[in-house]
Amino acid sequence: MRIIVYGSLRRKQGNSHWMTNAQWLGDHQIEGFELYNLGLYPGVVPGAGTVYCEVYRVDASTMGELDALRTKGGEYKRHLVQTPYGSAWLYIYQRSVAGLQQIASGDWLKRDEDV
Rank of each mutant, 00 (worst) to 15 (best):
R70L: 15
Y6T: 01
N21P: 00
L100H: 08
I103H: 02
G43F: 03
A104I: 02
C53Y: 04
R2C: 12
D59Y: 11
V97M: 04
Y76P: 00
G86S: 06
P84Q: 09
T83K: 01
E65G: 14
A22Y: 12
W89N: 14
H79Y: 15
A48S: 12
Y76T: 06
S61K: 10
S87E: 14
A68I: 12
A22G: 12
G7I: 04
K72Q: 02
D114Q: 06
S61M: 14
K77H: 08
Q94V: 13
I103P: 04
E113P: 04
N21I: 01
D59R: 10
G64P: 02
S87Q: 15
G86Q: 02
T50G: 08
P42R: 00
P46F: 14
Q82T: 02
G26A: 10
C53F: 04
A60I: 07
P46T: 10
G26R: 14
E75Q: 07
L90P: 00
Q23P: 02
D114G: 08
A104V: 13
T71L: 00
L35H: 04
V51S: 01
T50K: 14
L109D: 03
Y41R: 00
R2M: 13
Q29P: 00
L100F: 06
A68W: 07
L40N: 14
I103M: 02
L25G: 06
Q29M: 05
G99C: 08
Q102A: 08
H17K: 10
E54Q: 13
A68C: 04
S105L: 04
G99Y: 00
C53R: 01
Q94N: 12
N15W: 13
L80N: 09
Q13I: 03
S8D: 09
E31F: 09
I92H: 09
L9Y: 15
P42C: 12
G43C: 12
S87A: 13
K12G: 04
Y91V: 09
R78C: 07
S87L: 12
W108M: 05
L9Q: 01
Y93A: 06
A88G: 12
L9G: 10
P46K: 15
R70V: 02
G39N: 10
S61N: 11
Q23F: 09
V58C: 07
G49R: 13
L109C: 06
D112V: 05
A98W: 01
L9K: 10
G26M: 13
G14I: 08
V97T: 13
G32C: 07
E54A: 04
K12R: 04
I4K: 06
A68L: 12
W18E: 08
M19P: 14
Y56I: 05
M63E: 13
H79D: 14
G106T: 06
K12H: 13
T71H: 07
G26W: 11
R95K: 15
G86W: 05
Y93P: 08
E31H: 07
Q13W: 00
G7T: 02
I4H: 07
F33H: 07
E113M: 01
